[in-house]
Design a protein around this nucleic acid. Sequence first.
DNA 1: TATTTTTATTGCCAAGTGGAAAAAATAGGT
DNA 2: ACCTATTTTTTCCACTTGGCAATAAAAATA
Lengths: 395, 395
Amino acid sequence: MERRRAAEIPLDTPADALVCGTILTQGPILRGDVSRLTGLSSAAVTRATRTLLEAGYVVELGPTGARAGSGRPASLLDMRADREFFAGVTVATQELVGVVIDLKAGVRVARHRPLSSRGVASVVSEIADLVAEMSGEFPRSSGSMHRLGVTVSGDVDRSLGVAQYSPFLQWRNVPLAHLLENETGLITVLENNVRGLTIAEQWFGAGVGVSSFALVTIGAGIGSGLVVNGSVLTGAHGVAGEIGHISIDPLGPQCRCGCRGCVEAIASDQAIIDQIRSETGISGLTGADAIALAKSGDIAARSVFSRAGRAIGLALAALANLVGPERIVISGEGLAALDLFEEEVRQSFAAQAFATAAQCEIVIRPLSFEHWARGAAIVAIHDLITPETKNRRII
Amino acid sequence: MERRRAAEIPLDTPADALVCGTILTQGPILRGDVSRLTGLSSAAVTRATRTLLEAGYVVELGPTGARAGSGRPASLLDMRADREFFAGVTVATQELVGVVIDLKAGVRVARHRPLSSRGVASVVSEIADLVAEMSGEFPRSSGSMHRLGVTVSGDVDRSLGVAQYSPFLQWRNVPLAHLLENETGLITVLENNVRGLTIAEQWFGAGVGVSSFALVTIGAGIGSGLVVNGSVLTGAHGVAGEIGHISIDPLGPQCRCGCRGCVEAIASDQAIIDQIRSETGISGLTGADAIALAKSGDIAARSVFSRAGRAIGLALAALANLVGPERIVISGEGLAALDLFEEEVRQSFAAQAFATAAQCEIVIRPLSFEHWARGAAIVAIHDLITPETKNRRII
DNA sequence: TATTTTTATTGCCAAGTGGAAAAAATAGGT
DNA sequence: ACCTATTTTTTCCACTTGGCAATAAAAATA
């Protein structure tokens, strides 16, 4: 699969890509600031900018509103959002979620569709259908759509476009990117779903301008994506950010991974439900019931949520102590219940974080499934713009 | 402090530094392999090599022993060990440990000296004395010594050369590198002691050729240094690799950090001694006694060591699950007792490591205090050769 | 001795980048 | 209205770097 990037966006030199990425993520920005942020000379910034301006990817917003005194007025640069569009699809538990976004990651269309089967062929054709459907449904003023990003859970090799192993889909070594390129005609990139969301936050969310941060998702499972030195950790064996399977209590509940006291066995949605069921004896208890019960003041339910909060706080502290991110972003579907344990999370984090690691900022960002699909689409942008490093540094 | 690197070793271009680092760490190596490892063209390798050969930093070992069939024989390149020497000093609990090493990190002199006081002025002058003493004591065939590496525990900013905070020395914001440059006349680099040992392993030990690994030290404290994408983690707030303060048991012993169940409170030397004392009632028990007792088959002592092993195994699993290193190296003074719990470490690691994270290799390397001092000296080499990256990538 | 094979070197070239000077665009003073 | 100071942006030039491809070197083999 030949990547015909040149036809899409002119990023001939490393400086081009650097400038493009900076304008993209740092929003409207002055040339001088681009130069300072990237370390490039102003000459290089001018050149790269001109290329992008001529190709219509960047616009000049005219003199900045707040006049800065005398001197030639600086003019702000920004991406032209409607110059190009990107599709993104994430394979969730029960459904496919798809979006089309513009170059500034603004969502133009969003669609859900139930997942009828987990077979490869069926998933491929349903993703293709969803994309085709969406691509007819948004007002494309001028730009076109060449790229698709797809995220699934499990072990994914992005450079190969292969889903190596997905327990949920029961897939092994599925070359999904290739299959979808054939089916949709779009250049397709495949990524792990948590990493996709992490990249989205890194470029357009709470990770902008920060060189290291972590995105923690709480819900059906508990996972995280870690960004260190500006790049997302992959793990030498494909595992990284598995914060859910840190054990914090040798007497804790059994986890489905086989161990005792994993964070996920204490604080995932199902774990909370199970614990409240066994404490209260209510057998048909749902997630909503559990939250309602706790909010109504039920002691047993509240203590289960508290325990979950402490477990998460300890896990975040382990993360902060080991990796030392500048910021930790908490998100996920479980956030409906977050106010039930946010205080415990913060307290036990603060207690367990070692020395200055406690300065790590913890922010909470509710993210919907649409955000996950948007993450997939943003991976497509990321793939377009991030240059492949040529020289391997071993030192 | 102007870094007059040019006078020492000709590393004018990035390619020079890349080739130099590769030859240094990959031992005797063929030009062709350098080219393959670095991604540089063979022409660039030839050019960089010639510069280094002419300056006497690299030697050609002549045709490789094992003839590889027909064709022009390839010749191995290696660093000339005695072309330059480096001093390294680490500030240990009771003493200063110093070494002088050559360019290939071979130790030429090693010396201990008691630490008479922890005051800044006294430490500075004693380090300077130690270095002066050593520099007269090794047979320098031709190379000279321009650089000194120093490591201390605590929060260190290497680029500033400042010890920001060292609880053990009770220092805050001590510009130790600068003070020592004035005192010794050597270009001095200051680094955290665990990071120093980690860099040593990365370049000359179990981390060679691996892009991510962890070095875990077990002894008076439990810490680790993490290498990801070829660079040592620093932590946004100066804390990283603090594996000792992960909490794995809410009912565990109280740690000096104030929390319960930290790995360090279960598995550090003192923690093990304390636990065995309280189990057996022997008040004057020393570390050697504890080991002897356990080796003699004492049930209580053995179970304390077993518990420590399990705690370390869980901590290593947390590390592997979060960061996903290719390899974990275990070292430290506590290794005298390692055979008492190695099996537990491996078992509980294997049980708790998530999915393929269990493939992470665990190797054991006993490292003496002299190795720590050597680590400091290797940081001086590292500082000489590692080029400062010019462009800041924010994407 | 000629040929083949593998490795190393050299000459040439293209291009990316930085430095410095020039130009552009404004505010403010006279 | 014009000039000057100021700040941002652009242009021009030259340099460095590293890749490509042809060439040389050093063996083994025919």
